[in-house]
């Protein structure tokens, strides 16, 4: 359980920070696409007799690396190559499953993960990647901010915007790869989207967005673990639902949607004829 809380902290922070990047760039589906690339890679590893984790890592990092260049060369929005990669990876995963005799347990574990049985090595990997993400967001905050705003503007002011954008996508792949065994592909997608989307309801400041998303990610993981322990529920599913509840609550209390009533009421009954 101690390891699970640590995995929740490290994975929660890493996934949520990455989530801010993908949510603000409107490429949330990248989480699903890269998770399924990892699944296909794990199956290939099992099929060819090498480590499924190595296969998963290679496939997910390769997928993350080619999304940016494919989008730029093909003059697409990034969601198009993400969709292409997702469909190709699903196809490959089914192909490998068809070719693979016997059980596919290890590969399926990568898709579902198991936060309660996280090993020391997985925690070290998660810790390194979490430190990398926090370091990258801190050191390259201004470059990331400019690329999120408008890549054309970032390029024009003298930022190597393509490099920064591809780096952000690669970092996304790295976080997903590192979190797969402990958190699992499905929960990763949840932790990427929900905390960032929840934080997005509360602020227009990118700095606060990163901070709130990280906080929500960790709180969702820890609250989910506690609830799953208390009520004997599946931990991954409980964490996912807690993160979703956080998002719903933030949407309801969001100041962005609140119209300042007193301001509007002043105008009720006033004449609309400006020429009077």
């Amino acid at each position: 359980m101690h390891n699970a809380f640590l995995a929740g902290l490290l994975g929660g922070v890493a996934c949520s920070l990455i989530g801010v990047l993908v949510v603000t760039m409107h490429i949330s589906f990248i989480g699903v696409a890269i998770s399924h690339a990892a699944f296909a890679g794990a199956l290939l590893g099992t099929l060819l007799g090498f480590s499924p984790v190595a296969g998963a890592s290679a496939f997910s990092l390769a997928a993350a690396s080619i999304i940016g260049p494919v989008a730029d060369r093909g003059e697409f929005n990034p969601d198009t190559p993400i969709g292409i990669i997702f469909s190709v990876m699903i196809g490959l995963a089914f192909l490998f499953m068809g070719l693979l005799p016997g059980p596919k347990t290890e590969a399926l574990e990568i898709l579902w993960g198991s936060i309660l049985t996280v090993g020391e090595n997985d925690l070290v990997l998660l810790g390194v990647v979490c430190a990398l993400v926090v370091g990258a967001v801190t050191l390259f905050f201004k470059e990331i901010q400019a690329v999120i705003f408008q890549r054309e503007v970032a390029l024009a002011v003298g930022i190597p915007a393509h490099l920064v954008f591809y780096g952000m996508l690669f970092l996304t792949g790295l976080v997903i790869t590192a979190s797969l065994r402990s958190i699992g592909g499905i929960l990763i997608f949840n932790l990427i989207v929900n905390p960032a989307a929840a934080a997005y309801q509360l602020t227009y400041s990118l700095k606060k967005l990163f901070a709130l998303a990280g906080l929500f990610g960790v709180c969702s993981c820890w609250a989910g673990l506690v609830l799953s322990y208390l009520f004997n529920l599946p931990s991954g599913a409980t964490i996912a639902l807690v993160a979703a509840v956080v998002f719903v609550v933030c949407s309801i209390i969001s100041p962005k949607r609140k119209v300042k009533k007193w301001r509007c009421e002043r105008f009720v009954g006033e004449s609309s004829d400006l020429l009077q």
């Binding site: 390259f140 201004k142 470059e143 400019a146 705003f149 002011v157």
Partner: peptide, 23 residues
């Protein structure tokens, strides 16, 4: 919904001169 204010957008004009790692 872009989480960037006007002052930060103008500051982006300085980013190229600042280069990496400088605030």
């Amino acid at each position: 919904r872009m989480p960037v204010c006007a002052r930060e957008v103008v500051m982006m004009g300085r980013y190229g001169h600042l280069g990496f790692f400088r605030r």
